[in-house]
Write a protein that binds this DNA or RNA. Structure first.
Lengths: 121, 121
DNA sequence: GTAACCGCTTTCCATTAGGTAACTACTATA
DNA sequence: TATAGTAGTTACCTAATGGAAAGCGGTTAC
């Protein structure tokens, strides 16, 4: 009864709720780097330096902050392997896979929108 | 072959592309108010003051800015009805409905995540 | 005339996000 | 011993975001 079947928007009475939900989701996912980072780690676990190389333009400070934020929200996990020297590997959590649909939709929309905007210039 | 069927994430070779797509999408949709505003207008067209009342906490300056941004991205339309006094009514465009899936997914995820975070405190 | 409403704009200010560069502690390699 | 890599931290700076308060030009109601 309460499931979002067929991706229809909720009716009037649930609008305020949907508004709050979207607002809350954006509070967590907002920012320039969070979703690209999660997407990148869903591809494969990676080390700090690998992330810096893959996500072009991110500075170590910002990367460290974003990783902490994402960890607090259960979206990624920081693994420390006690080898010498220690290897620190970040990976997407099982929970982060709840973002799969959002990421797929965003990727699709972003590509489409880029083409639309290009066409209008 | 290249379609995103069944919402699976793209493979390795398309990762960079997906990264860019998500990055671009977030560039447009980022911010505290844009998606809630679009969602609100998809419900029904509204006037400036109605939006101020419905989207709690937004100031007129910020609202005016966000509306301009959204108009530039073809997501909403500003209609001026030459009655006396003029009525200005904002409405979601047909194009904005390409965000339906994203909004539905975000609403769903936001609600779920709020509950998850609550449970952990 | 005066007050109030509409759709903003303007000014000012505080907070946040994000960027640069240098630096640290540790380990490994030459 | 010197150099380089790893995983960040620190200090400093700028730009963008966002909020409060007031005002403004027009219209309408009293």
């Amino acid at each position: 009864m309460e499931t979002i079947e067929n991706k229809t928007l909720p009716g009037r009475e649930e609008c305020a709720g949907a508004l709050k939900n979207v607002f809350d989701a954006m509070y967590v996912l907002n920012g320039k780097w969070k979703l690209p980072l999660v997407l990148c780690l869903m591809q494969s676990p990676k080390r700090f330096n690998e992330l810096q190389k893959e996500i072009k333009g991110i500075s170590p400070k910002v990367l460290a902050n974003e990783l902490k934020d994402l960890e607090l929200n259960f979206l990624i996990q920081r693994n420390v392997y006690p080898t010498t020297p220690v290897r620190i590997v970040y990976e997407a959590t099982a929970y982060s896979h709840t973002l799969k649909n959002i990421l797929a939709e965003l990727s699709h929309w972003g590509e489409n929108h880029r083409n639309k905007v290009k066409g209008k210039i």
